[in-house]
């Protein structure tokens, strides 16, 4: 059994290299697919890579292994990020990425747990992942299973009321085997989050809901690892990382652009983007 153990990749440079590869694979599959969500996939890469490759126990040969740590991509439109990570982790051959969004592909437009083992729960309708993460964490706790649960949300996503229901639940039930992340890239579909429907102050809101809140530079690997360490040590309450990120991160001409939420690269843009990422 090829269990990938905790701390397998603790080297910051190695994690950065994985992040580069993941970014390139995201762009590759989006270019091939011709549709999908570019900006929000790129903004969460560094946090997701840090969680998956520096923390999580999992086994691609036994995706339902009961002691695995769980990862829920609540912002399901960032599916390409999840697929690039799973390919890197060995859940499926890399060429499967060519089939993103194609008919009968396991790589559905939004993550589907029934078409791709290793995905914990189907997402895509925003605001639901944290509730599921709570349930998993409660179930693991009932079994005295030390596995941890991770859940990544968007900053627009936290406008959903259910997120705050779940925020209450996690604090009420003192769920400390859970680490949530808000990918705070400041943008959603119709514009800047603060303009569409203000959610500031994010930190204070989560704090008021009883969470241990850690602000983190979402593109600084060292910073992220430090925050993940702190979350593991936090007992009696849940932890949320407010990851300050840039939408489209890694590709200058996508960065911080509202329109690149749901636009994919042209083949020319792809070539340019790959060069930037290699040099970045």
């Amino acid at each position: 059994m090829s269990v990938i153990t905790k701390g397998k990749v603790s080297d910051v440079d190695k994690l950065k290299d994985i992040a580069k590869k993941v970014r390139i694979n995201i762009l590759h599959m989006l270019t091939k697919a011709g549709s999908g969500h570019t900006g929000g996939s790129l903004s969460a890469v560094d946090v997701a890579v840090a969680i998956y490759f520096s923390r999580m126990n999992f086994n691609p040969d036994d995706p339902y292994w009961k002691d695995r740590d769980r990862f829920i991509l609540s912002k399901g439109h960032a599916a390409p990020l999840l697929y690039a990570i799973m390919a890197e982790a060995g859940y499926f051959p890399i060429d499967v990425l060519n089939n993103l969004r194609k008919i009968e592909s396991p790589l559905q437009g939004h993550p589907c747990c029934k078409s791709l083992p290793g995905i914990e729960v189907s997402t895509g309708s925003l605001g639901q992942g944290l509730s599921v993460a709570n349930g998993m964490a409660l179930g693991l706790r009932l079994d005295n299973n030390p596995a941890r649960v991770y859940c990544i949300m968007g900053d627009g996503e936290i406008q959903e009321g259910q997120v705050w229901e779940a925020a209450m639940t996690a604090a009420h039930y003192k769920i400390d085997n859970l680490c949530a992340v808000v990918d705070s890239n400041g943008l959603q579909i119709d514009g800047p989050v603060q303009k569409v429907m203000g959610i500031a102050p994010i930190h204070d809101k989560w704090s008021a809901f009883g969470w241990h809140v850690i602000d983190v530079d979402g593109h600084n690997m060292k910073d992220i690892l430090g925050a993940l360490d702190a979350s593991e040590k936090t007992k009696g309450r849940p932890t949320v990382l407010i990851a300050n990120t840039t939408k489209g991160k890694g590709v200058s001409f996508f960065e911080d652009k509202v329109e690149y939420h749901g636009i994919t690269p042209t083949p020319e843009e792809y070539e340019k983007a790959v060069k930037e990422i290699h040099n970045g």
């Binding site: 769980r70 914990e120 729960v121 639901q128 992942g129 944290l130 509730s131 599921v132 993460a133 709570n134 349930g135 998993m136 964490a137 409660l138 179930g139 693991l140 009932l142 079994d143 299973n145 259910q162 779940a166 639940t169």
Partner: peptide, 9 residues
């Protein structure tokens, strides 16, 4: 959602 999570555990 929580019920779904519990079932997945």
């Amino acid at each position: 959602g929580t019920a779904a999570g519990l079932s997945l555990a």
